[in-house]
């Protein structure tokens, strides 16, 4: 191991190691960042929820958006799988149905980034997941 030579070195190292604990830091104060819950019951997985979840995790990271992607069980919308629930900091959750990769991209660009509402929002008269 090469020794850390100065403070800048240490800071660079910290940034490079950040991903080791990033997930934990975000979960520590989830209310401060956008939270995305992906319904992953059997029906959700069959309809492609897993791909949507992976896409969300990777894209948020690539587009430099601080967000937390959570996997949850049945969301009670079997008819509209895959479903995801998005909560922007300080706002009420919004649920989107029939989310595929293209839709996920739109949700990130329009709703998550700018709070613009778009098609595919499911009625909010459901039991909250948590």
């Amino acid at each position: 191991m090469e020794k850390i030579k100065n403070l800048a070195d240490l800071r660079k190292m910290k940034d490079n190691l950040q991903n080791k604990i990033d997930l934990r830091e975000k979960s520590d104060s989830p209310e401060a960042i956008v939270q995305i819950k992906v319904g992953m019951a059997t029906s959700g997985i069959a309809s492609g929820a897993k791909e949507v979840m992976n896409y969300m995790i990777e894209e948020l990271d690539k587009r430099n958006i601080k967000g937390l992607v959570l996997q949850v069980g049945d969301m009670g919308y079997c008819y509209a799988e895959p479903t995801i629930e998005v909560t922007r900091p300080g706002e009420s959750p919004v649920v989107f149905g029939y989310v595929d990769i293209a839709k996920a991209n739109e949700i990130i660009e329009k709703y998550i980034k700018n709070g613009e509402l778009l098609d595919g929002i499911l009625p909010a008269n459901y039991e909250s997941i948590k």
Binding site: N6, L7, L10, K14, K20, I21
Partner: peptide, 18 residues
């Protein structure tokens, strides 16, 4: 130690020293 460094361990020491 890498997890600690990611959490800014020794950052305060570095700051104080420099």
């Amino acid at each position: 130690i890498e997890e600690s460094i990611a959490r800014e361990a020794y950052g305060a020491l570095g700051k104080v020293l420099s």
